Amino acid sequence: MLIEQAGEPVGEVLSRNDAKAHCRASDFDDDDTLIEGYILAAAEYVQDVCQTILLRTPFKATGPRFNLGFTGFPRPELSSVSYVDDLGATITVDPSQYEICKGRLVVHGVTSITSATVEFTAGIGAGNVPAKLVQAARMMVAHWYANREASGEGLAPVPLGVRDMVALHRSFAF
């Protein structure tokens, strides 16, 4: 199934005030917009390296059948499961007919479908993101803030420790 983001994530991985304090930029507001951009990029970087959704986010999965695994989508909550049958009728599946078993969607009693749609919310959730991942995001923000004018060989490498902090939190670890 093709999974697409269907709404905005809820919450934040790292607050602006926390990032500003880490960057030692708390005494002025001139760089707030810049730092907010770095915060979004750092959270995305950590999420991409971990291959795990950090903030609770709505998703929509579509495909020719119910073949949906939730690797990288921790704590999935299904909100709607539906399909189009052979006659073209759209049918919403009763929640008693589906479940998540061993990280995969299992739908009972549906035999003939031409397309399937699953709406769900997944992600670790603001306030539940492991401290190492929040620290990795802080370090990335500070790195980009301090090296925003780097030239020559490009930006300096990722700060020591960031990759180590996120390595054990890849999606297969959840």
Score class of each variant (00 low, 15 high):
45 Y>V: 00
45 Y>I: 01
45 Y>N: 03
47 Q>V: 02
48 D>Y: 14
48 D>E: 15
48 D>F: 13
48 D>W: 15
53 I>N: 03
55 L>V: 09
55 L>I: 09
57 T>I: 04
58 P>F: 00
58 P>G: 01
58 P>A: 01
58 P>N: 01
59 F>E: 00
59 F>Y: 15
59 F>V: 00
61 A>Q: 03
61 A>W: 01
61 A>S: 05
62 T>N: 09
64 P>S: 15
65 R>P: 06
65 R>Q: 12
65 R>V: 06
66 F>W: 05
67 N>M: 06
68 L>G: 01
69 G>H: 08
69 G>M: 07
70 F>C: 02
71 T>A: 09
72 G>A: 03
72 G>P: 04
75 R>N: 06
76 P>F: 00
76 P>Q: 00
77 E>D: 00
77 E>K: 01
79 S>P: 00
80 S>W: 05
82 S>C: 02
83 Y>H: 09
83 Y>K: 01
84 V>T: 14
85 D>Y: 13
86 D>W: 11
87 L>P: 00
88 G>I: 08
89 A>W: 10
89 A>Q: 09
90 T>L: 07
92 T>M: 04
93 V>C: 08
94 D>W: 03
95 P>L: 05
95 P>F: 04
96 S>Y: 06
98 Y>E: 08
98 Y>I: 07
99 E>T: 14
100 I>P: 11
100 I>M: 10
101 C>N: 10
102 K>L: 09
105 L>Y: 10
105 L>N: 08
106 V>E: 14
106 V>F: 12
106 V>W: 10
106 V>Q: 11
107 V>S: 04
108 H>P: 05
109 G>H: 02
110 V>H: 09
111 T>F: 14
112 S>E: 10
112 S>T: 08
113 I>R: 13
116 A>F: 11
116 A>H: 07
116 A>S: 15
117 T>S: 12
118 V>K: 01
118 V>C: 03
119 E>Y: 01
119 E>L: 03
120 F>N: 00
120 F>I: 00
123 G>E: 05
124 I>D: 13
124 I>V: 15
127 G>N: 11
127 G>C: 10
128 N>G: 10
128 N>F: 14
128 N>T: 09
128 N>V: 07
130 P>V: 11
132 K>R: 13
132 K>P: 13
134 V>C: 07
135 Q>T: 13
135 Q>H: 14
136 A>P: 11
136 A>L: 14
138 R>P: 06
138 R>W: 07
138 R>H: 10
139 M>L: 12
140 M>L: 15
140 M>Y: 07
140 M>S: 04
140 M>A: 04
141 V>Y: 13
142 A>Q: 13
142 A>I: 04
143 H>N: 13
145 Y>K: 09
145 Y>Q: 10
146 A>F: 08
149 E>M: 11
149 E>G: 04
150 A>E: 11
150 A>S: 13
151 S>N: 15
151 S>I: 09
152 G>I: 05
153 E>G: 15
154 G>H: 09
156 A>I: 07
156 A>S: 12
157 P>C: 02
157 P>Y: 02
158 V>Y: 06
159 P>Y: 10
